[in-house]
């Protein structure tokens, strides 16, 4: 238990992620997965409170569904996006192995979930006091977005540490005769910057998959006027729905 907590603590402080392969190898992916699932269930528990307080009769199954679905959302997204991250990061010059990339990604997802679960009390408070379904939905989308963004930011930092630690191939030209136009293309492929540029594509993929995963796992909150179901039929998509929530906020 104590060791588990130390892992989480080190993860949170960025000790184990930003310092290259050696520290990354010390992470225990199995333990981290366990922590991530448990904390995801905690957030799901708070999220499910909306199902208890918004309906005439409390729907306990909604709490249970959320506790399963929030960890599932993160884990399924992780496994879908993992191969593409491996390919991208290897092409960029990361020296991580196939399993090493998985460990890194598990660390990142755990970090996201820790950020998310720290918003748990706030979500619970709003779930108890708010009846407006669309407000709750947007609030949760915002919290998931913040958690995801911080996780992705940490991943970027970790990748830059892995790739950018190599010294630049050539010393920058010191002669004033060289026109700046010649040096610029060289600059554009500086490792750190290249990581960022290519990595942006992966971020878009990750966000899209995550959003769509959340969509097929719905309902999380459960619209009070509808009866409880474990899953809904397929219609529209995540982005259309968030847009409609904005429009419906005041109706």
């Amino acid at each position: 238990m104590r060791q588990l907590w130390r892992q989480v603590d080190e993860l949170l402080r960025g000790k184990s992620l930003y310092e290259g392969e050696a520290t990354l190898a010390k992470l225990r992916p199995g333990q981290l997965l366990l922590v991530a699932m448990a904390l995801g269930a905690v957030y799901g528990f708070f999220m499910g409170w909306y199902g208890l307080f918004s309906r005439p009769a409390p729907e306990y199954r909604q709490v249970l569904a959320c506790m399963v679905k929030v960890p599932a959302l993160f884990l399924l997204t992780l496994f879908i996006c993992y191969p593409s991250l491996y390919v991208f990061s290897t092409m960029l010059g990361s020296r991580l192995s196939f399993t090493g990339t998985l460990v890194l990604l598990i660390g990142i997802v755990t970090l996201s979930i820790i950020v998310l679960v720290s918003f748990g009390p706030i979500v619970a408070f709003f779930a108890v006091s708010t009846e407006n379904y669309y407000f709750m939905k947007l609030l949760n989308v915002a919290f998931f977005a913040v958690a995801g963004a911080l996780g992705v930011g940490a991943l970027l930092k970790a990748l830059q540490a892995l790739v950018g630690s190599a010294p630049p191939a050539e010393a920058p030209p010191s002669t004033p005769n060289v026109p700046p136009a010649l040096t610029r293309p060289e600059d554009r492929f500086a490792p750190a910057r290249k990581v960022k540029q290519v990595f942006q594509i992966w971020i878009v993929i990750y966000a899209l998959v995550g959003a769509q995963m959340g969509w097929i796992l719905r309902p999380f909150l459960g619209k009070p006027s509808l009866t409880f179901t474990w899953f809904r039929t397929r219609q529209a998509n995540f982005f259309v729905d968030v847009f409609h929530s904005f429009l419906n906020l005041f109706s």
Partner: peptide, 18 residues
């Protein structure tokens, strides 16, 4: 205050200011 402190701590830690 109590509701906000957990997330603020985590945000501080993520920013490296723990």
């Amino acid at each position: 205050f109590l509701l906000c402190v957990p997330s603020f701590y985590v945000l501080n830690a993520v920013a490296g200011l723990h």
